[in-house]
């Protein structure tokens, strides 16, 4: 092993848990997540020698993972293991959070979270965030992660999932409401 290869191997060992955590949030399946990360590392390893800077290297590896995740999602869709929900969202989010006149339910009324920058630097926030993501129903969580963690546009999400853009907006609305609610309860209290 050359010195560069040894360094790359050390980078990979350090990077791996973060890659797996990210892939799991998106794929919601431990085996699929491992597969995506494995393929990513194989691809990355072949070309790792061309990288000097470490952060540049990590960004590049996550970029590869993103495409491996999309491949896995397409495969899951073909195999029917993932049915992106259709027009009939069997979901009571809105009825649960709002009174019939459209006001917040008392127990669901949002409270103050503090300064955004401080919130994002709080480690507990991220622990609760991950727990809340896992608690989201699959169909809602996948659209949310495609949008907010993978950074796809809603137009691209339509292509990947076969749902309409309007439906995508509806799902994102519910995902944000549910995450917000879950964070409110799990993090502040």
């Amino acid at each position: 092993m050359t010195l560069t290869a040894t360094l790359a191997a050390a980078h990979f060992t350090q990077l791996r848990p973060r890659l797996v955590a990210f892939a799991r949030l998106q794929l919601r399946d431990a085996t699929a997540a491992e597969d995506a990360v494995q393929e990513t590392l194989l691809t990355a390893f072949e070309k790792s020698a061309t990288f000097e800077g470490r952060s540049e290297f990590e960004t590049w590896v996550f970029g590869i993972l993103k495409y491996k995740i999309l491949d896995q999602l397409r495969q899951q869709r073909r195999q029917g293991t993932w049915q992106p929900l259709d027009q009939n969202l069997d979901d009571d989010t809105l009825d649960r959070l709002f009174q019939s006149d459209g006001h917040w339910q008392n127990a669901a009324r949002p409270s103050h979270w503090g300064e955004p920058e401080q919130v994002l630097e709080n480690q507990r926030f991220w622990q609760v965030f991950d727990a809340c993501m896992i608690a989201l129903p699959d169909s809602i969580a996948r659209v949310f992660t495609l949008r907010e963690l993978m950074g796809l546009s809603t137009a691209d999400i339509c292509k990947e999932t076969g749902i309409t853009e309007t439906n995508c907006w509806v799902i994102l609305h519910r995902a944000r409401l549910r995450l917000r609610e879950c964070l409110d309860h799990g993090w502040l209290n």
Binding site: R18, F22, L25, T59, E148
Partner: peptide
């Protein structure tokens, strides 16, 4: 708005090209 900003800030993540 905060939830919308999180993508690139998640500890497991990095800015994606």
């Amino acid at each position: 708005d905060l939830l919308h900003k999180i993508g690139n800030r998640h500890p497991a993540s990095l800015r994606m090209p």
